[in-house]
Write a protein that binds this DNA or RNA. Structure first.
Length: 573
RNA sequence: GAUUCCGUAGCUCAGCUGGUAGAGCAUAACACUUUUAAUGUUGGGGUCCUGGGUUCGAAUCCCAGCGGGAUCACCA
């Protein structure tokens, strides 16, 4: 018997072996011809009882109520649960009642996958159920699932809620907490809705490199790696912006990419080291045009999930139907602090920060100071979708200078629930201006700013060939999905959020012990005594081990022959 | 990174001022032909996260570590 298994796991392995002994494959290879699902039966049976007289469905056993020669069980498939009714003489029609008495009652467990064929009926208590005629084992489950019980009124008993276990073992989470599957179904819907909207406008979905030799397009610290054959460092992309712009140079009028970005920074409930974004670039457009596009797009997304442009989030009702409120960055600060910063220089801004208790440090320039005031005093007020426009040029090296306001760029960010979810520019396509702005970033990098953008000579070369006027947009998909599904942590919208590495349990094999002369039957006993590795055993006192083995043999009523003292002493040589 | 809380059976959790480790569900055995958290009776199941320390004695007190949550900071 294996080491370290709980009693329940041992029982399940024994049951699996007994199935094999009965000639039943616990993991059969054949296609199982399912012709219905739980949701379909629950919704349509009553209107059309005739159609459900020969139903085949499959799923996990999630509960069992055995009463002598008849039983009820619930099976759960991808769509929900269905009660099944199993009568001994139906699944074991002849003299041999093994199928019911042994296979169903003894050898099946909660969590096993089975397939059943039969007819649908309504029980005396009014529950739509499947009367089983044939039962097929599809996959034996060797580890017990947590049992979560739900009552009609929604009360949940023994809920499986430990976030660590839920995220590390998402397969268990979604099995026993199937309501969380809806978040991921909606996530998929968000992405598909956006894709089909973009496609319907003739914009093309593309893929660009994830491994990049220059990490550009955003301000963030990258993950670094190394290519052996080329013997060169590579970075996991922090953004794909510069590649998509190259494709606009290449002559595509509209390109977009959904994909993972990687940033080697902190993790919390709104940040995961890898996250999904969409970026889209459309030629001959500007950021004003882009605002209308975003409004249309997000309204479609909200409707796809909720049927309405209204999304409930906590106590708020967010309205994604445009047009959204528009405020310039300076006006937003004026609105929420009554201070006009538009004409202030760095010294004056510093004084303002001091007055209104916004913490600053000496390295901050004008752009950064304004950004601090905005984050501190404005952001959290922006609950309904709101565009903040026209940012100071210092912090935005890839956006075009404002057509009429010196010192600003043509940029907007969309805020909802106090969080930024989209960022867009009239893209900078003047190659000389672009080179100067990236050179300023190099100066910042020289001063120790780890997030300053790197120079990308190939990108500049592309711009020199000429890029049409273009508007670009980036949306953080994870945060958008959080908004659309009412979640407050990014982990809830990621199937497999990043976690610290699980503590490695030292793997011991029986062979290690057998190799030093311990009979295999005694290995579990040694484990029980606390010797989980050969090293631990050798560090023990041989005489005590010998005595204790005898004691364990008696205590556990083991019917195995005792090794001689000399044999035991030999283990320690 | 800081603060704080948590880690006990397969799951959810109790365990007081330190004194032989508990409950419900799950699980095993028996009974039971329409149950609904099925029921009744009887069992088994524990590295009390890890390592030190204090103590005659530690799940409990102290220290360190590991893992997780929350809040804050950082980070578009």
């Amino acid at each position: 018997m294996s080491i370290g298994l709980s009693e329940q796991e041992i029982f399940r392995r024994e049951a699996m072996q007994q199935l094999r002994n009965l000639g039943i494959d616990p993991y059969p290879p054949e296609t199982f011809p399912v012709n219905a699902n739980a949701k379909d039966i629950a919704e349509n049976f009553e209107a059309n009882t005739e159609a459900y007289q020969d139903v085949v469905i499959a799923g996990r056993i999630m509960s069992r109520r055995i009463m002598g020669s008849a039983s009820f069980a619930e099976i759960q498939d991808a769509t929900g649960r269905l009660q099944i009714y199993i009568k001994r003489d139906d699944i074991s029609p002849g003299e041999d009642k093994t199928m019911y008495n042994t296979v169903f009652k003894k050898l099946l467990d909660l969590g096993d996958f089975i397939g059943v064929r039969g007819y649908v009926f309504t029980t005396q208590t009014g529950e739509i159920s499947l009367h089983v005629r044939e039962l097929t084992i599809l996959s034996k489950s060797l580890k017990p699932l947590p049992v979560v019980r739900r009552e009609e009124d929604g009360t949940i008993h023994d809920a499986f809620t430990d976030p660590e276990m839920r995220y590390r073992q998402r397969y268990v989470d979604l099995t026993v907490n199937p309501e969380f599957k809806q978040i991921f179904i909606n996530r998929s819907k968000v992405i598909r809705t956006m894709q089909s909207y973009f496609d319907s406008n003739g914009w093309m979905e593309v893929e660009t490199p994830i491994l990049q030799s220059v990490h550009g397009g955003a301000a963030a610290r990258p993950f670094t790696t190394h290519h052996n054959t080329l013997d060169m460092p590579l970075f996991l992309r922090i953004a794909n912006e510069l590649y998509l712009k190259r494709l606009i140079v290449a002559g595509f009028d509209g390109v977009y990419e959904f994909g993972k970005m990687f940033r080697n920074e902190g993790m919390d409930r709104t940040h995961n080291p890898e996250f999904t974004s969409v970026e889209i670039y459309v030629a001959y457009k500007d950021y004003i045009w882009m605002m209308a596009m975003v409004e249309q797009c997000l309204e479609k997304v909200a409707r796809a999930i909720h049927g309405l442009p209204i999304v409930k989030f906590g106590e708020h009702e967010l309205n994604f139907a445009g047009p959204y409120e528009k405020l310039s960055m300076y006006d937003s600060i004026l609105k929420y602090t009554a201070i006009d910063v538009s004409a202030m220089d760095e010294v004056a801004l510093r004084e303002v920060c001091k007055q209104i208790n916004v913490p600053v440090d000496a390295t901050m320039g004008k752009g950064k100071l304004i950004d601090e005031i905005f984050s501190e005093k404005v952001e959290h007020h922006l609950i309904q979708p709101t565009y903040i426009t026209d940012y100071p040029i210092e912090m935005t090296p890839l956006a075009k200078k404002h057509r009429s306001k010196p010192g600003l760029v043509e940029r907007f960010e969309l805020f909802v629930m106090g969080k930024e979810i989209a960022n867009a520019y009239s893209e900078l396509n003047d190659p000389i201006d672009q080179r100067e702005r990236l050179e300023e970033q190099l100066l910042l990098a020289g001063r120790g700013d780890e997030e300053a953008m790197a120079m990308d000579d190939d990108f500049l070369r592309a711009l020199e060939y000429g890029m049409p006027p273009t508007s670009g947009l980036g949306i953080g998909i994870d945060r958008l999905v959080m908004l659309m599904t009412g979640q407050t942590t990014i982990q809830e919208v990621l199937f497999f959020p990043q976690m610290r590495a699980e503590k490695k349990v030292k793997v011991v094999t029986v062979d290690d012990f057998v190799n030093i002369g311990v009979p295999a039957v005694w290995v579990p006993v040694l484990n029980k005594m606390g010797f989980n590795t050969v090293e631990e055993l050798k560090a023990g006192n041989p005489n005590k081990v010998f005595n204790d083995l005898g004691g364990m043999r008696k205590k556990l009523k083991l019917d195995i022959s005792m090794p001689t003292k000399d044999e035991v002493m030999a283990w320690f040589v």
